[in-house]
């Protein structure tokens, strides 16, 4: 692209940066608010204190909610990446007539509004005792994160030459050994990055958690929602700041993994 010299290009650039500011400012604004000394939110924030961070880390309830979310997100990442990779592998290497059904069921949980799924699961899990339990959250979040895993892994597995596996198998390896020794190392960075994304989706998921949370078992987003409505203090911007940092770390991690996967597959 030539450097923008004419008026049209400048106008376009100005417009684009205004939109980018619109995107970024709300994320940045929470940071100064988290250091405010007032007990309630005002702008501009006054003074500087770290007490809201220590309140978050010291509170048993916030810690419990965070720990629950961490457990759920870790298990979700594990299940989603294993189930998703298995299914993707089957779709790519198999001779299945289930392609259409697979695609519909994969996309369904993204298309159907989360409020619908949340209400459905609320009524269903309540009757079988899964409501407000870790398995309940994990099952629900796994379904929500599978599409991300499958699409990431489909792109990665599609790039791996199937003849490599075939060669390994003609040397006597079983299918599973061929996958484990040849294909898996090649797509491992993608697998880890899709697990990272599954983790963060689950960790931040508000709607299904809102309905599935029990009276004692509450995920972090559900606790935050309650505090925003019932007890709004700068603890919320403090947690928001921590969550944004977490998102940035995960994106960076995924980026590093992605660059590694490109070099690996390219150099095979």
């Amino acid at each position: 692209m030539k450097p923008p010299t004419d008026r049209g290009s400048l106008a376009l650039a100005a417009y684009v940066y205004a939109v980018l500011a619109f995107i970024i400012v709300p994320l940045v604004i929470v940071i100064p608010m988290s250091f405010s000394q007032n007990d309630y939110l005002t702008f501009p924030p006054s003074g500087f204190t770290l007490k809201w961070y220590s309140e978050y880390f010291d509170s048993r309830q916030w810690r419990a909610a965070t720990w629950l979310s961490v457990q759920v997100a870790l298990l979700t990442a594990l299940f989603a990446s294993v189930i998703g990779t298995a299914a993707t592998y089957a779709m790519i290497r198999g001779r299945s007539r289930l392609v259409t059904a697979f695609q519909i069921l994969l996309i369904g949980p993204i298309i159907v509004p989360h409020i619908a799924l949340a209400v459905g699961l609320y009524l269903f899990f309540q009757t079988i005792g899964l409501s407000g339990t870790i398995p309940g959250f994990v099952l629900a979040h796994t379904v929500l994160t599978l599409p991300f895993v499958v699409f990431t892994m489909a792109a990665a597995l599609g790039k791996v030459d199937a003849n490599l596996e075939a060669a390994a198998m003609s040397c006597g390896a079983t299918r599973f050994q061929a996958f484990r020794l040849v294909t898996l190392p090649l797509v491992l960075p993608n697998l880890v990055s899709s697990a990272l994304f599954a983790f963060i989706i689950s960790f931040d998921e508000p709607v299904v958690s809102f309905f599935l949370s029990g009276v004692r078992q509450k995920t972090l987003p559900r606790r935050m929602f309650e505090d925003i409505e019932q007890n709004l203090t700068p603890v919320i911007p403090a947690i928001a700041t921590l969550l944004i940092v977490l998102s940035i770390l995960i994106l960076l991690g995924a980026q590093v993994l992605r660059s590694r996967s490109v070099t690996r597959i390219a150099s095979q």
């Binding site: 702008f43 987003p221 929602f225």
Partner: peptide, 17 residues
């Protein structure tokens, strides 16, 4: 980045704004 940050965080940020 916004795509991978919490909807709740972004909504709360707007309520402050």
């Amino acid at each position: 980045l916004p795509l991978w940050s919490s909807v709740l965080v972004r909504t709360a940020a707007w309520s402050f704004l």
